[in-house]
Write a protein that binds this DNA or RNA. Structure first.
Lengths: 167, 167
DNA sequence: CTTGTATTTGGATTTATATGGATTATTTTG
DNA sequence: CAAAATAATCCATATAAATCCAAATACAAG
């Protein structure tokens, strides 16, 4: 069942939280409800290079990974191919969200992402799933997003000044 | 049976471990479960040139080698082909994972890969199987993977700033 | 060929850790 | 202000890791 009768937007908003002593994160009721509905709590965790832990419903992740044709045949002869398998295999993991809405961050991912026990974290909705950020890395990421948007806007304005006879 | 009812992704994640005094590595319950399911614990070990020991289910390894068609006919006339056969022949070996989830690294592979008794190792999931790395070589490999991902991301963001009239 | 020794292999026991649930406190909402 | 819902804490159980030990095998010497 959907959350409080509100169902239009899935996986949105930001929730602050902490990682408990055993490396577990608890989702807010809203996010928990979305995962129950979309994938019966079966998710894939993927450590992103920019420093966040993505949490996607399983089918979303499958679609992302589809298109890797014939992995076995290609792995023997190609270093590029093996590195590709490594960067997805090593940084992904199937997990299940518990009945209390908690998920354990695999130890191998913790250091890398700043997601160590007792730290403050932010759960960020990204429409197709959520991302878990350490509070420090999230504020850095926000700055980068802002910076990029401002730069892009300025370029757009500059382009608008150029007379375009073809228009 | 699959592990904990979670089965979508096989052979994923990273597990730290050690090689015991007799040169044996123990797989995590997850990885062990994947091998039981996929190949009844019959695997092929293959020492990769980048310094890891690949552990593949037997049929995966067969598929990998199938790309190299008709070895008998080709071997007579081609040095490249003979060398290919040699490097796979010399650096591969069939093994069976024990009932406790342990595997013995053949002595011939140890020195070459830094996989000597009492060393720290990392078992890395690569979707079609796993790789066993010495902790030192793995952190070097990780740096290379990270560097590549970061460079790729920066180029993508830079491209997004360019005004595209065709859009 | 036989016996003694060393090595290796597999399994059992102990110790530590992680998981899930229950309880209590806090906050929110009507 | 009361009731419900959510968050935080704590604890019991289950699970996995580490250590240790015994059996089996291989090896060497006599």
């Amino acid at each position: 069942m959907d959350y409080n009768g509100v169902c239009m937007l899935s996986f949105c908003g930001q929730d602050n939280g902490t990682i408990d002593a055993n490396g577990r994160v608890k989702f807010s009721p809203r996010i928990f409800s979305d995962f129950k509905e979309k994938c019966d709590c079966e998710v894939v965790l993927h450590a992103l290079p920019e420093g966040a832990l993505a949490v996607y419903p399983e089918d979303i992740y499958s679609n992302m990974r589809r298109g890797e044709a014939k992995p076995a045949e290609s792995a023997g002869g190609s270093l590029v191919f093996r590195r590709n398998l490594r960067s997805f295999g090593a940084f992904s993991s199937s997990e299940r969200i518990s009945a209390q809405g908690r998920i354990t961050i695999p130890p191998a991912f913790r250091e890398r992402l700043g997601l160590v026990p007792n730290n403050e974290i932010v759960v960020v909705g990204v429409e197709i799933g959520v991302e878990i950020w350490s509070i420090e890395l999230w504020s850095e990421e926000l700055s980068k997003i802002d910076e990029h948007a401002i730069e892009k806007g300025e370029r757009e304005m500059a382009a608008d000044l150029v007379i375009n006879n073809g228009g």
